[in-house]
């Protein structure tokens, strides 16, 4: 069970894995995630979005960035190896409908979970604009796949090594202020990006869905570690989400909670980057 069928390195830190998991493949819908654990006794349980699934083959695809203990270990595994524990699919599926014009904004690794959603939105008959952002050319993933389904694709990098030298909020703002205002925006990426996407669309009244990836233990509603404040109410990302109205999410609190287990030193380092980024984005 849970055998790794295929492993592809997409960029320096990003890997794609196809895993044998027939039950999850059968039930999974766009927007859902799973919990993965590499060692039954001592491993941590981490949430990862399901990027794709092939029910006929009984496989699912995950795309992950090596950021912590588990993702580093996962990246070191090979085809044929098995993953100790996979639980899913979890969370509510994305609400797919014919909205009209939909803009999907994916930042960094967030492009991966965005792909099945964009695909479903397109299939539902929406006009699909995809905005993809990455720090640099090296970190751009799934551009080809996205191009194949998008009516329009805008690629941005922070340093201009691929596409526009811009943050994703720039083209998003242009779209919202133009004559062809989107009927729905979906943003998935780093919390700070989702926060500023929501801030960008807010004045234009464009409904904005964000998909949150918080700290979880069980992923089934049991621990409450994933809780976020949405419109002043406490919600559990695992059972109430992972998608929420981006205009109602308290991103600042969420980002602090994401740093719960950072040591003091890491915290400082993280804050410096965060402040720089915020400065950059608010310019």
């Amino acid at each position: 069970m849970n055998r790794i069928l295929e492993k592809v390195q997409l960029s320096r830190e990003v890997f794609k894995m196809k895993i044998e998991a027939s039950l999850i493949a059968e039930e999974r819908k766009p927007g859902q995630f799973l919990i993965l654990q590499l060692d039954t006794n001592f491993g941590e349980r981490i949430p990862l979005t399901i990027a794709d699934a092939d029910p006929s083959e009984g496989s699912i695809t995950i795309i992950f960035q090596t950021v912590g203990n588990t993702t580093h270990r996962l990246a070191s595994m090979s085809e044929g190896d098995s993953i100790a524990n996979l639980l899913g699919p979890l969370g509510h599926p994305t609400h797919i409908d014919r909205f009209g014009k939909v803009v999907c904004v994916g930042g960094g690794i967030g492009v991966a979970p965005m792909y099945p959603i964009a695909q479903a939105m397109k299939q539902a008959g929406n006009h699909l604009t995809v905005i993809m952002g990455a720090r640099n050319r090296e970190l751009v993933i799934m551009e080809k796949e996205m191009r194949a389904i998008a009516d329009e694709l805008i690629l941005c990098t922070d340093d201009g090594t691929a596409g526009r030298k811009a943050l994703v909020t720039e083209p998003l703002k242009e779209l919202c202020s133009g004559s062809e205002k989107p009927d729905l925006a979906v943003a998935i990426g780093p919390p700070i990006m989702m926060k500023f996407c929501a801030e960008t669309t807010r004045p234009y009244g464009v409904p904005t869905v964000v998909s949150l990836n918080t700290i979880m233990v069980d992923g089934t509603g049991m621990c409450g570690g994933c809780r976020v404040s949405v419109g002043g109410k406490t919600k559990f990302v695992c059972v109430d989400g992972p998608e929420f109205d981006g205009h109602l999410v308290d991103f600042d609190n969420m980002m602090l909670r994401l740093g719960s287990y950072r040591t003091q030193e890491e915290e400082e380092h993280h804050r410096c980057h965060l402040d720089l980024k915020i400065e950059e984005v608010s310019k």
């Binding site: 233990v217 069980d218 559990f236 602090l256």
Partner: peptide, 24 residues
């Protein structure tokens, strides 16, 4: 399965846990 919280201000600060989470 779903831990109750007190619904008091500040309950989402870092360092507030449900007993379920802490014990799990």
């Amino acid at each position: 399965g779903l831990p109750k919280f007190m619904n008091v201000p500040g309950e989402n600060f870092v360092g507030v846990f449900s007993a379920n989470e802490y014990l799990t």
